[in-house]
């Protein structure tokens, strides 16, 4: 059943907003009986102005680094009150990979029983698109006008190294895959980490009508892998299976050229990115479920 309860009209997001797309898919996956913890980021604004709220879910907005701790307190409170509620932390990539990383890691180590959802638009979009630990090599941002030097932090792998029960990656370009993974996460006790790529027209500089297309290209060019990690093994999603072999990957330039943020990248920069992708897939191959 694809019911959609999380997002009502009145959101103040930009046209083509990938976070709102992810929010709708989240409720298609989870239905009702959800409590959201929303940390600082675009989503704390796009809910609209209080006392109204465009999110249909019970939600607690909270300071940047406090998402996982608040969720830790909440799921325990629901359990004590015999309420069956799925607690979801909704966090941007900056809130996840940088300022909130210690609290994410702490809650994962304690194996707290909630879903942590990272919506990754690869920049601090709410403050104006500044670079975060999740911004890729070569990308232009207001704080890296020369292009960021250094790769994206690989948070899904770092979370795998926490030995939590479930880690999954997704892309808003592939709704069924994303929804399935969130649904699966809901059935598992303990800490679930889901990382969804949410290409942002305003940070990545593409036309807002093309959000889903860019989200697909990221997967097709193997820049962004779709997989899940469960029972100690990685399972690559069908959409990404072609990436396991270098020859079958779609050229990276198809992904880079559709966006303005890579316009200053040179051949060397592209090679660096390609090497990053090779290494990413080598790492995935080593942990494959066979």
């Amino acid at each position: 059943m694809l019911n959609d309860t999380s997002l009502m009209s009145g959101t103040s997001a930009c046209p083509g907003c990938p976070e709102n797309i992810a929010m709708r898919m989240l409720s298609m996956a989870l239905g009702k009986d959800v409590a959201l913890v929303v940390i600082a980021g675009c989503s704390s604004v796009t809910q609209g102005l209080a006392p109204k709220n465009a999110y249909g879910y019970a939600s607690l907005n909270i300071a940047f680094a406090a998402g996982p701790p608040a969720a830790s307190g909440m799921w325990r409170a629901y359990k004590r009150r015999n309420r069956d509620v799925t607690v979801v932390v909704w966090a941007g990539d900056g809130g996840t990979s940088d300022i909130g990383f210690a609290s994410l890691s702490g809650a994962a180590e304690r194996n707290e029983d909630f879903i942590y959802l990272c919506v990754d638009n690869e920049a601090y979009m709410n403050t104006g698109g500044h670079r975060s630990g999740s911004t890729p090599h070569g990308a232009l941002t207001p704080t890296t006008p020369e292009g960021k030097s250094g790769n994206k932090k690989e948070i899904p792998f770092i979370m795998i190294d926490h030995n939590i029960p479930y880690v999954a990656t997704a892309s808003v370009g592939y709704p069924h895959d994303f929804i399935d993974k969130v649904r699966e996460a809901k059935t598992i006790r303990g800490f679930k980490y889901v990382h969804v790529l949410t290409p942002d027209p305003y940070g990545w500089l593409f036309d807002p009508s093309r959000t889903a297309e860019v989200a697909k290209l990221a997967v097709q060019t193997c820049y962004w892998p779709l997989f899940k990690w469960k029972d100690g093994r990685i399972e690559v999603s069908p959409e990404s299976l072609h990436c396991l072999k270098k020859e079958t990957r779609r050229p990276l330039k198809d992904f880079l050229s559709i966006q303005g943020r890579f316009k200053k990248i040179d051949e060397k920069g592209i090679e660096d990115l390609e090497r990053y992708i090779d290494e990413l897939w080598e790492r995935i191959s080593l942990n494959l479920k066979r």
């Binding site: 913890v37 909270i62 680094a65 998402g67 307190g73 909440m74 409170a77 009150r81």
Partner: peptide, 9 residues
Amino acid sequence: GVTLGAGAA
């Protein structure tokens, strides 16, 4: 964060 989350819930 935990104390506030539990209280809010």
